[in-house]
């Protein structure tokens, strides 16, 4: 705490604010990437769990159970080291050059796989919540499965899925902090470095906390809007409002 608070947190080089903001940008980039990848896995996973064959279903069950039971930290270490090693070895086995997977891509991949397991469950629950009659009606009109997915299932399940997905987004923003353990330059790691270099641990950890909180609060505002949009035209759920 040798120098003033504002000098330390100033975004221009003698201050470390710029480092924190760069870290925040990296965190958000990873969160967006992981959330997107997670939802792609989730859509495929939910589809597989509901309509897939017995083997697909059991494999997906194993995936979601293991990911939801093992700490993210352990999964990140396993996937970060083993995953990239495995891809490298596979490429070599097929006669390609080993490629270098940078921290950003690895981080998105690892957190995406974790998010995918939760997303699978959220989307599966949401699809199941769509009244059966709507799907039967669509089928009775002779809709193709593709058209049915696009026009009926996806829009109808959205209101049920959004609270769960919103929660997953908030988890994604916070889970990026775990990548500090594998040395990726996201917000928590940048904070740790700034704190270590200046010895102003308290100041920097509080500052980072404010940034994370701001992300959560801003997200909540948007989530509220999206939820209202997705529920448009639906009858108000008793006691559902907050």
């Amino acid at each position: 705490m040798q120098s003033g608070l504002f000098e330390l947190l100033s975004p221009n080089p003698p201050g470390w604010g710029g480092n924190l903001l760069r870290g925040l940008a990296n965190s958000l980039l990873i969160a967006v990437g992981a959330f997107g990848l997670g939802n792609l896995i989730g859509i495929a996973g939910a589809w597989g769990k509901l309509y897939g064959g017995p083997i697909v279903r059991d494999l997906l069950e194993t995936y979601t159970t293991v990911v939801r039971a093992v700490p993210e930290l352990v999964l990140i270490l396993l996937l970060y080291y083993a995953g990239t090693d495995l891809i490298g070895r596979l490429l070599e086995a097929f006669g390609y050059q080993r490629i270098d997977i940078n921290g950003l891509v690895a981080g998105i991949g690892v957190l995406g796989v974790v998010q995918g397991a939760y997303s699978t469950e959220v989307l599966r629950g949401a699809i199941l919540a769509v009244p059966q009659g709507q799907i039967e009606a669509a089928r009775a009109f002779g809709m193709s499965p593709c058209l049915m997915l696009r026009r009926i299932t996806l829009p109808a399940m959205l209101p049920f899925a959004i609270p769960g997905l919103a929660n997953l987004w908030l988890i994604a923003t916070k889970d990026t902090a775990l990548l500090a353990i594998v040395g990726f330059n996201e917000l928590t790691q940048e904070t740790r470095q700034a704190a270590g270099a200046t010895k102003a641990y308290f100041t920097f950890f509080i500052a980072a906390g404010v940034l994370y909180l701001a992300v959560s609060l801003v997200s909540n505002v948007f989530i509220g809007r999206i939820e209202r949009w997705a529920r448009r035209g639906m009858p108000a759920v008793a006691g559902g409002g907050r």
Binding site: L170, K174, D175, T176, A177, L178, A180, T188, T191, R192, A195, Y201, F202, F205, I206, A208, G209, Y212, L213, V215, S216, L217
Partner: peptide
């Protein structure tokens, strides 16, 4: 709920 636990832990311990 709005901040990562890792950060809370480091704030308490090192902060």
């Amino acid at each position: 709920r709005g901040t990562p636990l890792l950060l809370q832990l480091w704030l308490l311990y090192y902060g």
